[in-house]
Amino acid sequence: MKIKKNYLIVGIVTCLILIVGIIFLKNNMNETSYSKIYQKWQREYIVKNGEGSFVNTVKAGKKQALSEAQGYGMVITMLAAKKKYTDQSAYDKLVAFYTKNTIPGKKFMYWKLVEKEDKWENVDQSNATDGDLDIAYSLILADQMWGSTGKYNYRQMAKQILSDLLTSNYNQRTHLLRVGNWATDSSGMGNLIRTSDLIPSYYKTFYQYTHNETWRTIYYKSIDVLGKLSNQNSTGLFPDFAWINGNDVAAAEGKVIEKDTDGDYSWNACRIPLRLSLVRDKRLRKINNKLLTFFNKQRKIEAGYSLNGQTLANYQSMAFLAPIGVAANLQKSKFPQLAKELKKQILQTKLTGNYYGDTLQTYSAMVLANQRGVQDSE
């Protein structure tokens, strides 16, 4: 009897060791997958030159840099650095390129730069709000991780960008940021918003960092507008652009800035599920939950939808799939299958050579790798 009992104990201990080993192996495999995605992406898209490093957005011909892409690259690099997939020197090279390509008198990066005869030429003197938001946020992450007494004063640089955003891009009537410094009242675009610029987690961080009440105002206004847009249809889908008129908000119609799909869930709004996942707030979770409920019912998630849920394309893109995957994995108790399938795709889908899809896939992978670091709700 005693021998049988000993065998039972040995069997239980062996099973426990096997279970722990399997969990460790699985976690290690995932860690390797995250690292490989980042390493592949940085080899494909990060280009070094005499000014530092930039994210190249074109595969053939003359090189092109966008503030949007630089912002993504800087955030991705910081998230990768947190996991020790890269280091401070890689981030500082991206900072160097940004500092050499800012609009005179401001700390905004030119929204678009094209390489001509080994020199960079800016398209105009405009900025893109989304790019500068990401750049500022990455600098805050850098300050929190490494401090600001080294080669660059990350803290001061971040605060200067945030100050310029409030001076040049803040609309005191809508209490939101305009799409760029060019979107003035005289241009007729002052009340236009890019819905993917509504990033409550950033605004919360900016308020905590600067103690400027305007960021707190933008934080709450963003949540209010997101909620109103979500309630305007049964799908919970957002338009790429929307108009603010007093307390009302309406999806844009037709081509306003970029495409005829400016009022649809397209290449800008596809980032929203990821953006909303970065802070744990019950109001934002409810908004994302409605989005996820719609996508959970789709046989395939396509690259664009009208706000009533009609597909705009008959192909898929990681630009759409990956952000939804992040949102689903942060609510995987409600959407276990969707979370599992999309996480698998994020980790196993090879980069395609399309800058936008590959970059949002990598960004999403880095968020998942760091998902324990998302903020708690107030």
Rank of each mutant, 00 (worst) to 15 (best):
N6V: 15
Y7M: 15
I9S: 09
V20C: 14
I23G: 06
L25S: 10
T32M: 04
S33H: 09
K36W: 00
Q39F: 04
V47Q: 10
G52S: 07
G61L: 08
M74Y: 01
Q88E: 15
K93Y: 02
V95L: 07
A96H: 11
F97I: 09
T99P: 03
T99W: 00
N101F: 08
I103G: 04
P104K: 13
L113N: 00
S126I: 00
N127V: 04
A128P: 01
L133E: 14
D134T: 03
L141Y: 08
A142P: 04
Q144T: 11
M145F: 09
W146D: 11
N153Y: 05
N153H: 09
Y154I: 07
R155Q: 15
Q156V: 13
S163V: 07
L165K: 02
S168Y: 14
H175F: 09
L176S: 04
R178G: 13
N181I: 03
W182I: 03
W182Q: 06
S186N: 14
G190T: 05
L192G: 04
I193W: 01
S196V: 05
L198K: 06
S201N: 13
T205R: 09
Y207F: 14
E213I: 14
T214Q: 14
R216K: 14
R216I: 02
I218T: 09
G227V: 12
N231T: 13
T235Y: 09
G236Q: 02
L237Y: 05
A242P: 13
W243C: 10
A252C: 14
V256C: 08
D260H: 12
D262G: 10
A269E: 06
R275L: 00
L276R: 06
L278N: 04
V279C: 10
R280Q: 15
D281A: 12
K286F: 08
I287A: 06
N288G: 15
N288P: 08
L291D: 03
K297P: 00
E302M: 14
L307G: 01
L312A: 03
Y315S: 13
I324C: 03
A328D: 03
A328W: 01
K334A: 14
Q337Y: 12
L338C: 11
K340E: 12
K344I: 00
Q345M: 11
Q348W: 02
K350C: 03
L351G: 08
L351C: 07
G353A: 10
Y356S: 07
Q361V: 00
Y363D: 01
S364P: 03
L368D: 03
A369L: 04
A369P: 06
A369R: 02
G373P: 00
V374D: 08
